[in-house]
């Protein structure tokens, strides 16, 4: 039945997936089994996104299904089970920019691919990135921005990391809007990505996975 659940989630059958979770819980199946199934489904969804079978509607619906499942099993879960993670990624939209669709997709895909993601939200000042790098200790920092103004904010953020002596501890990737090699060189980032798939594969490379 947990195979059915994997299939229902991966195939975007929202109602069926939720019904199956309720059934499993009623039958006394352990929440970790359900979480495992959900994780497997996320893998499939991530692969389908990478293969251009799934797009935004599926990522967003998958996010909704996952949070409903999390709500359902929360009462049965004494403690979140330890999930082995590939690594940590800190992400946020830089100062002065409040666009977040692209950033959210990247966060979702990183999470689906096994990263622990800390999302600082939008309009994040350089100092906040610095503090989060210090506290969260990510291997990768993702800076997002849609406006041309974001180029300068990205540059400032990377300079702030340098000033704080943290630049060498992280790899920085930029993404969003019109970023390209020009912008990467200007900001001092390690790489740029035009889509979430590029972001995920770079992050994997950097943490030494696959």
């Amino acid at each position: 039945m947990s195979e059915e659940l994997v299939k229902a989630i991966a195939d975007m059958e929202e109602e069926e997936a939720i019904r199956l979770v309720r059934d499993l819980l009623e039958k006394g199946v352990s929440p970790t089994v359900i979480l495992d199934a959900a994780r497997q489904a996320m893998d499939i969804i991530g692969q389908r996104y990478e293969n251009c079978v799934y797009f935004l509607p599926e990522l967003m619906l998958a996010g909704e299904i996952m949070s409903q499942i999390a709500e359902l099993i929360k009462p049965r879960l004494a403690e979140a089970p330890e999930v082995r993670r590939l690594g940590k990624v800190l992400i946020g939209t830089v100062k002065g920019d409040i666009h977040d669709i692209g950033k959210n997709i990247v966060s979702f895909m990183l999470d689906a691919n096994g990263f622990e993601v800390l999302d600082l939200g939008v309009d994040v000042p350089p100092q906040k990135f610095v503090e989060a790098v210090r506290d969260f200790q990510p291997q990768v920092v993702g800076l997002s921005g849609f406006l041309t103004l974001a180029y300068d904010s990205m540059k400032e953020t990377i300079q702030a990391l340098e000033a704080a002596g943290l630049r060498d501890r992280v790899k920085v990737i930029i993404g969003g809007g019109s970023v390209d090699e020009h912008v990467r060189a200007y900001t001092g980032a390690d790489a740029f990505g035009r889509d979430a798939v590029t972001g995920v594969s770079l992050a994997k490379k950097w943490v030494g996975a696959q």
Binding site: T148, Y151, G177, S178, V179, D180, H182, V183, A185, Y186
Partner: peptide
């Protein structure tokens, strides 16, 4: 003509 080129090229 890309914005990035107009800005940084």
């Amino acid at each position: 003509v890309p914005s990035s080129l107009l800005n940084l090229g």
